[in-house]
Design a binder for these strands. Structure first.
Lengths: 234, 234
DNA sequence: GTTCGTCTGATTGCTTGTAATTACCCATAA
DNA sequence: TTATGGGTAATTACAAGCAATCAGACGAAC
């Protein structure tokens, strides 16, 4: 995405992203420079440069003279980000519908086949992989570099949020339906329809996550009261 | 916008932006690290950290082992960015219409008054200032941090493009009309109308710039042929 | 005359060291 | 017992130095 990956600070930035998205650096965690230096086997300067980049990307928060912390994504952030992504990816679907070649449609068809198979067999990681590939393909087909970049920036934040929550059960079949609707509109060269279907898809995605967050929250508070009974917490 | 401005690399980043937007570092220009070091009276380490930040912002391009260059914005970039901004600021107008208080409306009214006065007297810098303030106000009124950030990122690139081109004559009155239409819809609490009016405003803005670019281009090529006659160029 | 190879100058990128600021801990006093 | 003050330890932020790489220029060979 961002050109050559030669210099050490570029490598360090990518490794840091991997550490964050891999769950080794959890949201809210303190980023220890010296520890990471020996872990990545580099000096502090390139690491600090990489930290600046990730700060600009919004993955890391930097407090002067305090250090760096992995950013946490709140429910309000999600409420704000999802409508924007819906708008932007909707626009991608619109443009993609108008600019897609027959080969592009064929590629999408294959990806949707994988999506169906994964959903039918309940292979969640595989479903997410196909889902991701479809979104990426549609974004690429829109042929707008800046649109893609802005979406990428926001998606990075969403990716951060995914770490804090689990997967919704039964969301798969609903998600699949929405994707097939997007693809149907795209194949029929209905740009407005593809736009609308994409926006619906992402809005529903947010709703599913919100529901999940409530469940998780109540589960946690239930666990806390349970602890309180035994006089463990606080 | 981005928290405290204590550390030197933060200051350096801001000073770099000022240098770029002030025209001291023109698009395409090579960024000489050592020269800037003595100019800003700092060492290379914080300067390089600042350069990484501006690279992430898209203001600067970084070629490995070559150095940094101020990014140039092409006509295609503008063609890609403006529709996205139109979409996003349209959304802001929509949200702002629904969430604005009476005090917000009053503030906007005052700003639009300044806009009218500036246009009537042909005070271009003052008009741009009021124009900028109105856009910022509407974006703020939408109350969506991430929406504002994404728009800010793209507007920085546009600001870069403004350096490469002049102002359109006679655009002022047209721009004013469009702004009054946005404000009218906003005041009437017509969210859809405000959205549409904002999108129209930014689309027209792009058209005005495109026209200007064509004129500028033909003017340059005319100048070149003039030079050719005298056997100066190439 | 053109092209390829080498050399040199300059610039980037990384390592290391030093200073300053902050947080934490403990002691002392109220 | 609690709060406040000072001291210490750790960590960040900046500066300077050194090594690696690239561009440009000059010279030689075809």
């Amino acid at each position: 995405m961002a050109g050559h990956v030669n210099s050490m600070h570029d490598q360090a930035a990518q490794q840091l992203r991997d550490l964050i998205f891999g769950g080794d650096l959890t949201p809210g965690a303190f980023v220890d420079e010296t520890r990471l230096c020996e872990q990545l086997a580099i000096s502090r300067t390139p690491l600090r440069e990489a930290l600046k980049v990730l700060t600009a990307e919004g993955l890391i928060r930097h407090e002067p003279r305090r250090g760096c912390f992995v950013n946490q994504v709140t429910e309000q952030d999600l409420d704000e980000i999802f409508p924007v992504i819906a708008l932007l990816e909707g626009r991608c679907a619109f443009e993609a519908t108008q600019q897609a070649s027959d080969a592009d449609i064929a590629t999408l068809k294959e990806l949707h086949h994988q999506l169906e198979v994964s959903a039918a067999q309940g292979l969640i990681p595989q479903y997410y992989a196909a889902n991701y590939a479809i979104h990426e393909a549609i974004i690429a087909m829109a042929g707008n570099k800046w649109l893609a970049q802005v979406i990428g920036d926001l998606r990075k934040i969403l990716k951060l949020a995914r770490l804090q929550q689990l997967n919704a059960p039964g969301r798969l079949s609903q998600s699949l339906e929405e994707h097939m609707a997007i693809f149907a509109a795209l194949k029929a060269r209905d740009a407005e329809g593809a736009d609308a279907a994409m926006r619906i898809h992402l809005t529903r995605q947010r709703e599913a996550l919100r529901l999940l967050a409530r469940q998780s929250k109540s589960r946690i508070s239930a666990a806390n009261t349970e602890h309180d009974k035994h006089g463990v917490s606080t």
